[in-house]
């Protein structure tokens, strides 16, 4: 099953389980079924729960928050995550604060879905990875889709948490297969943390959000076959707040740690993860935690230019080598 089908199935299950669950977004109706086909079939199966909207990211996010405030479950699709800046006020100043600023915690089931990332030649305003702008907002959870995490479980966890969240979905994942991992490695999943490894203690631990999974695996394969460098990959489903304890436990045993993400340089999620690891493992780590990310640049459109900016398998490969020097 492809990732897009798994996510589609997860959304079907959410809407089927609760007639007071709604999905709102632009162009989400059948037969189109959303710009990336994630919502295909939903409006046919649940016509009163799937609402097509005008191009009004701020309002539709606010509408989702209003539904959630009234006890409904609201899933808002922003067509490209780049446009979430238009809804930043509703997410940061309304939804995230409403669960926390009125004295007691107000449960709100609001999921803002964000097709994200580059590699498809969509250019500077349709290719970004804006996760870092949502890290550290009190009351807001940040999740990222992964081919190793069943989206049915991920959505169930978001809904059970009753906290507003943003869900970054790397667009390149949609057409990949679920749970498909290179034969060299085995993988497991514990409490939302996926671990891909070989049967040997790792030289390097790579921590990455779901969208980077395949690039990290490709780098790991090359490092193992060409240089006999053993890596373990850790992919958390929720990027923030981060459950650091299992990362610390694995990182403690390795010679180096690399945090890899597609965000452009500066103020990254990886910097936050590195800070946590440095605090927990100061004096234990042999080297500073290394960061791999895209360049400090807008994301160009032409393929050769885009590849020069974005995080690639090679970026991760080289960062791992550097971290072990």
């Amino acid at each position: 099953m492809r990732v897009v089908e798994n996510l589609n199935q997860a959304l079907h299950e959410v809407l089927a389980a609760n007639p007071r669950a709604f999905l709102l977004g632009e162009d989400v109706l059948d037969p189109y079924g959303g710009a990336f086909k994630v919502t295909r079939g939903l409006s046919t199966s649940f016509p009163s729960q799937v609402i097509t909207t005008p191009i009004s990211e701020s309002a539709i996010t606010g509408v989702g928050a209003g539904l959630a405030l009234c006890g409904d479950t609201a899933i808002v699709e922003i067509m490209f995550s780049d446009f979430v800046t238009l809804a930043f006020d509703q997410i940061v100043n309304f939804a995230a604060k409403s669960v926390s600023m009125y004295g007691t915690r107000v449960p709100m089931r609001l999921i803002v879905r964000l097709p994200t990332g580059g590699g498809r030649g969509y250019g500077p305003t349709h290719s970004q990875s804006l996760q870092k702008h949502f890290i550290g907002v009190p009351g807001l959870d940040v999740y990222e889709m992964s081919p190793l995490h069943d989206n049915r479980d991920v959505l169930a966890r978001m809904i059970a948490a009753e906290r507003p969240c943003v869900f970054f979905e790397d667009k390149v994942l949609y057409t990949k297969r679920m749970h498909e991992v290179d034969d060299l490695f085995t993988w497991d999943l514990t409490d939302g943390l996926a671990r891909v490894h070989v049967d040997t203690p790792p030289d390097c631990v790579i921590i990455a959000p779901g969208g980077v999974t395949h690039r990290a695996l490709a780098a790991m394969r090359r490092l193992l076959l060409e240089q006999e460098i053993v890596c373990t990959l850790l992919v958390p489903s929720r990027l923030h707040p981060l459950d650091a304890a299992p990362l610390v436990a694995v990182a403690r045993e390795a010679k180096s740690v690399v945090v890899a993400e597609e965000s452009t340089a500066g103020g990254t999620w990886g910097a936050e993860v590195a800070h946590v690891l440095h605090r927990e493992l100061w004096g234990v780590l042999r080297n500073p935690v290394a960061l791999a990310h895209s360049a400090d640049s807008i994301i160009p459109t032409a393929g050769h230019l885009e590849r020069a900016v974005l995080l690639t398998e090679t970026t991760i490969h080289d960062t791992v080598l550097e971290s072990l020097k």
Binding site: I60, G62, A65, G66, G71, Q90, F94
Partner: peptide, 17 residues
């Protein structure tokens, strides 16, 4: 809530509910 115009989309959501 204290941000100008912010409550209106939310009120629309409540009205939809």
């Amino acid at each position: 809530t204290g941000v100008q115009g912010e409550s209106l989309p939310v009120a629309v959501g409540a009205a939809l509910h």
